Amino acid sequence: MLTLYDRLGGSDGIRHIVDDIVANHLANPVVNPRFAHVADLNHLREMAFQFFCMGSGGPQHYSGKDMLSAHRGMNISEQEYLAVMDDVLAALDKNKVDDTAKHDVIAILYSLKGDIIRQ
């Protein structure tokens, strides 16, 4: 059985997905204010890439903060969280990720909700 990493297209596929997620966030009026002024979008992309790779069973190591530390003090709302989830789903759709893999990604991200919202 293929890992989620493989089903997302491995390193290249995840890199495309992450690029599309960041583009979606920048175009999304609900979360754009959180991303429009990020000083180093390349660093954000790299952290998201590492996170997706490691979280999906890839060989990459995630060198970023844990989700609670990364989102502490941001006071992210439920609406913002759902907008981000929509952006992720749109990126997965654009990259023709199958429904089973999409559900697996959403399950992982949803499991982190408590570490992200209202921190």
Results as ranks from 00 to 15, higher is better:
residue 16 H to C: 12
residue 17 I to E: 09
residue 17 I to F: 06
residue 17 I to K: 05
residue 18 V to I: 14
residue 18 V to Q: 10
residue 19 D to H: 14
residue 19 D to W: 06
residue 20 D to Q: 10
residue 21 I to S: 06
residue 22 V to S: 03
residue 23 A to E: 13
residue 23 A to D: 14
residue 23 A to G: 10
residue 24 N to T: 07
residue 25 H to Q: 14
residue 25 H to F: 15
residue 27 A to F: 01
residue 28 N to W: 01
residue 28 N to K: 02
residue 28 N to S: 03
residue 29 P to I: 02
residue 30 V to I: 15
residue 31 V to R: 02
residue 32 N to P: 00
residue 33 P to L: 01
residue 35 F to R: 01
residue 35 F to E: 04
residue 35 F to T: 03
residue 36 A to V: 10
residue 37 H to T: 12
residue 38 V to E: 08
residue 38 V to K: 07
residue 38 V to Y: 06
residue 41 L to M: 12
residue 42 N to K: 12
residue 43 H to C: 03
residue 43 H to W: 02
residue 43 H to R: 15
residue 44 L to I: 08
residue 44 L to D: 03
residue 45 R to Y: 02
residue 46 E to V: 00
residue 46 E to S: 12
residue 48 A to F: 08
residue 48 A to Y: 04
residue 48 A to G: 07
residue 48 A to D: 10
residue 49 F to Q: 13
residue 49 F to P: 00
residue 49 F to R: 11
residue 49 F to N: 13
residue 49 F to T: 10
residue 51 F to V: 05
residue 51 F to L: 14
residue 52 F to I: 04
residue 54 M to T: 11
residue 55 G to L: 05
residue 55 G to S: 07
residue 57 G to C: 08
residue 57 G to I: 08
residue 57 G to M: 08
residue 58 G to E: 09
residue 59 P to V: 06
residue 59 P to G: 14
residue 59 P to W: 01
residue 60 Q to L: 15
residue 60 Q to H: 05
residue 63 S to V: 11
residue 63 S to K: 07
residue 63 S to I: 11
residue 65 K to E: 15
residue 66 D to V: 05
residue 67 M to T: 11
residue 67 M to H: 05
residue 68 L to I: 06
residue 69 S to F: 00
residue 69 S to W: 00
residue 69 S to Y: 00
residue 69 S to C: 05
residue 69 S to N: 13
residue 70 A to K: 04
residue 70 A to Y: 04
residue 71 H to L: 08
residue 74 M to W: 01
